[in-house]
């Protein structure tokens, strides 16, 4: 192989994106654009919220501008962002301009104090914000993000589908490990020969097989060896101990 081949102008190959099934409603335009204009491979699955996964470590949520401006959404948004940050190293938010209905005159967006303070808080927690005019542009941003992650060697590299009932069950089991997101679980499904092999793996092997960070792998390693107190479990029937 010659090493003097110049880099192709457009990034070759396709990017893989996981999509939560809840993104489908109201997301047809975006999905079509992702598939056709950006030749992305999409796989719809059931995640724990309506978001996209563009790499081993990055999740993307899509919100309308008025969503962010409304005070009543603040608490829910904070919970969502918190849980995503527990599962992913990087969390992006695409802020999309509100759609105007046909015939309606587009009104300029009224910035509220709540909107500004939400933005400030998000930025300060390390959430990356991206701005979009509409579905078409959001699709472009998602594809760009996935490509960027691909260049950094973080692309989703395992098949996005899991076939067979036993492997499905294994996937579900992996998903109930702490701090494990869907891509980690997928990777474990494909990279470990059995559930037992994962359970008996070293931290390094979990990190490699799960395509995850060292600290996450450590957390799983310890969790698998965590010794339960049967008294605590019986009292935890109600769910909460505070």
């Amino acid at each position: 192989q010659s090493s003097s081949v110049s880099e192709p102008p457009a990034p070759p190959g396709t990017v893989c994106i996981l999509v939560d099934s809840r993104c489908l409603s109201g997301g047809v335009e975006l999905m079509t654009s992702l598939r056709q204009r950006h030749t992305a491979t999409l796989h719809v699955c059931s995640l724990d919220g309506s978001y996209f996964i563009v790499s081993n470590r990055t999740a993307v949520e899509r919100h309308s501008q008025s969503d962010l401006a409304a005070t009543q959404n603040r608490k829910r948004l904070a919970e969502r962002v918190n849980s995503l940050q527990g599962l992913f190293e990087r969390v992006c938010l695409i802020v999309e301009k509100d759609r105007t209905k046909p015939g309606e005159v587009s009104r300029p967006f009224q910035r509220t104090r709540c909107y500004d303070s939400t933005l400030t808080a998000l930025v300060h927690t390390g959430v990356r914000l991206l701005w979009s005019d509409g579905a078409e542009q959001s699709a472009g941003l998602l594809a760009d993000l996935a490509r960027l992650e691909q260049r950094k060697g973080q692309a989703i590299a395992v098949p996005m589908e899991v076939k067979g009932p036993h492997r499905q069950q294994a996937l579900q089991l992996y998903l109930s490990l702490p701090s494990v997101n869907y891509v980690h679980a997928l990777s474990m499904c494909h990279n470990f020969s059995s559930i037992g092999q994962l359970i008996n793996s070293s931290i390094e092997a979990i990190q490699k097989g799960g395509c995850m960070s060292r600290s996450r792998a450590e957390e799983i390693y310890c969790f698998l060896r965590y010794s339960c107190d049967s008294f605590l479990m019986n009292t935890s029937k109600a769910g909460k101990i505070s």
Partner: peptide, 25 residues
């Protein structure tokens, strides 16, 4: 206070272990 600041949740692991074992058919 920033509502988006991640609280380091020190959840009990016991219920999570129990939940995982229940994933076994």
């Amino acid at each position: 206070e920033n509502p988006f600041r991640r609280r380091s949740s020190s959840r009990l692991l016991d219920p999570q272990v129990l939940a995982l074992v229940q994933r076994v058919p």
